[in-house]
Design a protein around this nucleic acid. Structure first.
Lengths: 163, 163
DNA sequence: CTTGGTGCAAAACGTTTGCAATGGG
DNA sequence: CCCATTGCAAACGTTTTGCACCAAG
């Protein structure tokens, strides 16, 4: 996960296409690699390498090597929502960027185009071409930002909340 | 550095005021603590705990404990520019948020107010009250974003460039 | 003198590397 | 058959924890 700024994402919609892309790029379709891809397709959101390793009963090393290789080939990418392990997602179609609530750990995925206006404003003001695919936008969600409303007031996170 | 969403920053301008704040909050002014504060005042930008530890010849453990304590009391905070160690800065006055170029590792610090328009747009569109104090805004700086210009074309980072 | 702070040792955690064995094409 | 890929062991860099000693107030 050393560094992986941008690898042009390969377009694919489903497992079969992803597998075709794997083969087409000269990678072998090992059991571990197929399982990792399947798991990522099945996952409801970003998953960590240790999670994958445990869930699939594949050595962590192998999971990392697969994710890194697939990332180099633009099939997956990783994201940081807060502290803790990096989280991995497919990089094929429907690219997402994430908003992360540091209080209740809520994660909101939005299509990249939805953030383009923000990106454009940042570019105009500061000259940077921003990318929220590596670091999520961290802050407070609507409920948690509401000063004293009835919403999530004071609620503790459901899962762990890496700040 | 477990988690530290927001601790109301104590306002202070210089070392003396910071020291007064330390004492006022019931913390002792140990040698290590004073050195860490001095180093942060002297630093031109965010610094990692291992860096501080080495530069000041203070045990890493002690540096971490001091930073964490000072963070809990709103005197310092930490930021992630990319991969690698968390980086620490004073949290007193002139708060900054950071833009980080993932290609040339350039860091641009901007006053929080300068990002308020961006924050406002994010709030309106997605309901999140964003905070770029924990994760920098990562992307490409003007030079590196320029497709084939004469600027930083192909230049490798000066220091390490954690993506 | 009290107790908060220190250094040292050791561990936790996520991640990377070296190497011999294995299985995919 | 060959070599990409695997598992295991071991290292890595950052951060945390336990504990006996020390020093700030």
């Amino acid at each position: 996960m050393t560094q992986a700024p941008q690898a042009a994402p390969l377009p694919f919609d489903n497992l079969e296409e992803a597998i075709r892309a794997v083969r087409g790029r000269g990678m072998r379709l090992s059991t571990a690699r197929r399982l990792v891809l399947e798991a990522l397709f099945a996952a409801p959101g970003p998953v960590s390498a240790p999670q994958l390793s445990q869930a699939l009963a594949i050595d962590t090393t192998s999971v990392y090597r697969n994710l890194e290789l697939l990332e180099r080939h633009g099939l997956v990418r990783h994201v940081h929502l807060g502290h803790g392990a990096g989280l991995w997602v497919l990089a094929g179609r429907q690219e997402h960027e994430y908003l992360y609530c540091e209080q209740c750990a809520k994660v909101t995925a939005v299509a990249v185009e939805e953030l383009d206006p923000i990106r454009e404003e940042i570019r105009q003001r500061f000259g940077y071409q921003a990318r929220f695919t590596h670091f999520a936008i961290v802050g407070l969600c609507e409920q948690c930002a509401a000063p004293h409303g009835a919403g999530e007031r004071g609620r503790r996170p459901a899962g762990r909340a890496p700040s």
